[in-house]
Amino acid sequence: MTDYAAPSAYASRQRSRTGQIALRWLLYALLCLFALYYLMPLFVMVTTSLKSLEEIRTGSLVSLPRKVTFDAWATAWSGACTGIQCEGLRPYFLNSMMLAIPAVALSTLFGALNGYVIAQWRFKGANLIFSLMLFGCFIPFQVVLLPMARVLGMMGLAGTIPGLIFVHVIYGLGFTTLFFRNYYVSIPNELVKAAKVDGAGFFRIFWSIFLPLSLPIIVVTVIWQFTQIWNDFLFGVSFSQAGTQPVTVALNNIVNSTTGVKEYNVDMAAAIIAALPTLLVYIVAGKYFIRGLTAGSVKG
């Protein structure tokens, strides 16, 4: 009985092995197809931006450029017209930088402080406050446009970059607090107690013990906040004026305000330039997505 059973079991194992390999290849093929589908627009954008207008008019959308030219990129950066001015994206790109960097830094720092207080310095009503901040994450931004415009006006910050920074910091706090609170809540409270016995105060404990522990969550928060703030259009278009507009608004103006022949290559180059910083943040910071930095610090 066993003599017969053994070879047949072997054969069936063999069969299932081949089946598994086939399945694996099918999976890869499918994944490649999806990847192709997702990369297609990027491919079209990059190739189009490297073609001359002449070639765009005569060639096919998906063909490679016959002659690579960076003219469109140069125009997009420093010559494209946004309405009446023709300075390209450069000044607006700088606006976005001056806006996004402080806004990300401040909202991350305040989020860390909030999370630290809510998770580690429990006080009466801490949960209520946390719930309210969470609620803030789900408020549609359209709702706050008018009240915020009024507040900015009263503060004398209407149409300025500090005003935009203020708006982004306020509306980022919900998420950044949530991130840090959830991270810090898993850190045993005994750390705070030990530091208190050692004589450290509120800020000392935050600065010397909690912040150094927070690299992974800081990276997550920075990526999230930078993407949100850099890509924001609604606040940018609502609370800025000529000269303080962020890059997203300028991109829109470049694409929508051209007259005559549509310069697809310039539009594409401008869109890529506007998207580059977020891409860069992902590539640089993604490396630091290290988990378990606290692993093993507590419990044996």
Partner: peptide, 21 residues
Amino acid sequence: VSPKDRDIAMVFQSYALYPTM
């Protein structure tokens, strides 16, 4: 009196060592 001024030292169940130091 706050803990730091009580002239005490404490050892915790989870040791509570500062993980990054």
